[in-house]
Amino acid sequence: MKRRIRSAAPSGGALSETGGHGRTPPVLTALPYVFMAVVAVVDTTAGASVGLLPLVSLGPAFSGLVGGWRRTALVGVLAVALCCALGIYDGLFEERRGFSALASVIGVTAAGIIAAVMRQRRETEFANVRSIAEVAQRVLLRPVPRSAGRLRTAVSYTSAVAEARIGGDLYEVVASPVGVRVIIGDVQGKGLEAVETAAVVLGAFREAAYDETGLSAVGERVQRAADRALSGEKFVTAIIAEIGGEGGAVLLNYGHPAPMVLRQDGSACFPEPPQYAMPLGLGVPAGEGPVPYRVPFGPGDQMLLYTDGVTEARDHTGTFYPLGQRSHLLKDPDPEAALEALRTDLVQHTEGPLHDDAAMLLLRFRDPGPTFGTLGPFDPS
């Protein structure tokens, strides 16, 4: 499995001097020196009457905004030396102007060092929080198996939250004694609260998917767990599916977008449930959950489960992403490469960062392959 978690900004990399990921752009690094050089040239050319000497303090001021405290201190020392040299050249130390300019440079340098230290501390704290968030999400959305039974799987997760790289989309694949059971869902909201809810839903599904013989029983356990974890108007849309060795898939739809099924002949369809049920977490009474429905799914077919961050992604004209028209992108023999092609096209459609997390889980029914327990006669219970 090749799990892809993407966001609007790149992740990873060692901490730089500024305390964040990556390095300060060369233009910003050179800016303090450029300012001091310009002041020196203009001062020596135009003379002391122009009164540019205090502007030497712009060097350490800009360095304090973008650099570390050591660099700011170095720039400050150079600024003080330059101020002294220009003051002597202009004869300003014979009057108060030279000393006031020197005092300005020293004061701005001290302020720049303090600002740089405080900024580094904040950036280090933010980097630590972001790292914890990324680890939490990796633990929550653990890698799904590359193959399960007669299925090959691939997953893609594109986060819209660059700062925390945490969202509320969830997915899982479990090979149970009666077939492969999968879930994909979307938690209302974002951040750590959404991750906590997703953890509850996934924990309940992972246990129930292996223990329960009926798919409806799996859904009921997940429903009860979500009801206990959520309050108010919070909810989780989800699809729980079961694919057996003899073909065919049984689905439970909790207010989630219908999956896209691709046939061997290249046709695509979006099988809707006989009736949509309420999302998880809204306190639906027992026995009033979604009606299980069967979808033909056999060798050579593909099923794409996704969250609404995919179909609700818009371009600059406000046009939604036409998922059905992009089904041809999933023709690559490698399911991971096929899903990556679809993900790339989705990002290109929006022409910028996504406004919502987008999770996609691709299931391919392969033949030949190992067999496992079959669904048997369709039993809604």
Rank of each mutant, 00 (worst) to 15 (best):
P271Y: 02
F320Q: 11
C269D: 11
N253A: 06
Y254R: 08
D308A: 07
K331S: 12
D301P: 08
H256I: 09
G248I: 01
I240L: 10
V291H: 15
P259K: 07
F270P: 10
K331M: 10
D334G: 07
F297V: 02
G245S: 15
M303V: 09
R343T: 14
D301T: 06
E242M: 05
D265E: 06
A338L: 03
A268W: 00
G245C: 12
G287S: 06
L329F: 14
M260H: 04
T317Q: 05
E272V: 11
Y321V: 10
D332I: 01
L346S: 04
P257E: 13
G287Q: 13
T319S: 04
D332P: 05
L280K: 06
P285H: 04
M278W: 01
T237W: 15
P257Q: 05
G281H: 03
Y276V: 15
G244T: 02
L252K: 13
R263M: 12
G281A: 04
G283C: 00
L329T: 14
A313M: 04
H349Q: 01
T317W: 01
T307M: 03
A241M: 09
L342F: 06
G318S: 00
G300R: 14
G232F: 12
L305P: 08
L304E: 01
I243C: 11
H316F: 00
A286G: 01
I240Y: 01
V261Q: 02
L280P: 02
I243N: 00
M278D: 05
A337D: 14
G309S: 00
L339I: 13
G318R: 05
V284I: 11
Y276S: 13
A338H: 03
L346M: 10
L262K: 09
K331L: 07
P333S: 05
A238M: 04
A277K: 10
M303R: 05
V284K: 01
S327R: 14
D332S: 09
K234F: 12
D265I: 08
R263G: 06
T237V: 11
E312H: 07
E340M: 04
P259N: 12
G248K: 00
V291W: 10
A268G: 08
